[in-house]
């Protein structure tokens, strides 16, 4: 037993910050009162009224992704720097904190996943809504069949100028925004159309059915991905937009920014 106790003591020895992932109010307050290092809350919503808070766009199932997002957010908001040793506490199973992980902030390579959400042109809530729609689409598909989809979010004016319409735009003269209740159904229906959805910074659905015509030179995306991903990577390199792609062949959701693949996740896991 004493050996195990030593391991736990080593885990919490000289840490510089504590990251709490979606804590309950009681456990947050208990830790804040006790702790002599900064306590940062990483959660979808700041329900505990924490001073240091990093907003998760979605509840990443993958713990690594969650921690990575927290780290990049912490560095970006200057709560921590790359040398900081952090204790991550979270709950994996039932209520309450049941896992602690010790990590050095610099151990992760910077992927820009936090940047993608927070420092894109489009508002974070818009990106989150689009991601939710795409995950929903990936889960259920269109009438049970797997579908592919491409959403270009932000910098809509430039994107519209770098693309052309394949056919009549069903969203012309409409003022729907992603996140409106009816929109999920509409997007699902229109996802059988070819081409990309264009969404503005504030979340307005500008167009469907767009054929993207960016210059694809120098776009570096993993080999084996199809034209849809290539188009997504290229448009984000050519404009300040980001792109969220649902792959028709492997069913994964991928996000691109600045011509690079930022992250991929499996919609089935959400």
């Amino acid at each position: 037993m004493s050996g195990l106790g030593g391991v736990v003591t080593d885990l919490v020895a000289d840490i510089d910050a504590v990251f709490l992932f979606s804590p309950s109010t009681a456990s947050y307050e208990a830790i804040v009162d006790e702790s002599d290092v900064p306590v940062v809350v990483v959660a979808v919503e700041n329900t505990v009224g924490a001073e240091l808070f990093i907003e998760l766009p979605i509840e990443f199932r993958e713990i690594k992704e969650r921690i990575r997002f927290g780290m990049e957010g912490g560095i970006d908001q200057e709560y921590i720097d790359t040398g900081t040793i952090i204790l991550c506490a979270m709950n994996l199973f039932d209520d309450g904190i049941d896992s602690v992980i010790r990590v050095r902030a610099g151990e992760f390579t910077h992927t820009g996943i936090y940047d993608l959400f927070v420092n894109s042109r489009a508002e974070p809530s818009v990106i989150r809504n689009v991601l939710e729609v795409v995950i929903g689409l990936g889960k259920k598909g269109q009438k049970g069949k797997p579908v592919g989809a491409l959403f270009v979010v932000g910098d809509a004016g430039k994107v519209m100028n770098k693309s052309r319409s394949l056919s009549y735009n069903p969203f012309e003269k409409s003022h729907v925004h992603v996140g409106d209740p009816i929109v999920d159904v509409m997007l699902k229906e229109f996802s059988r159309l070819d081409g990309a959805f264009v969404i503005s910074d504030s979340g307005k659905i500008v167009s469907a059915y767009r054929y993207l015509e960016p210059a694809a030179e120098g776009v570096d995306i993993p080999k084996g991905l199809g034209t849809r991903h290539m188009a997504a990577g290229a448009i984000t390199r050519d404009t300040n937009a980001i792109a969220i792609v649902l792959s028709e062949s492997d069913g994964l959701v991928r996000a691109f920014s600045g011509g690079e693949l930022i992250f991929e996740l499996d919609p089935e896991a959400y």
Binding site: G157, D201, S202
Partner: peptide, 12 residues
């Protein structure tokens, strides 16, 4: 320039 956004109060 290019119209980026038409909102209730402002046009970008």
């Amino acid at each position: 320039g290019i119209v980026q956004e038409v909102g209730l109060f402002a046009t970008h």
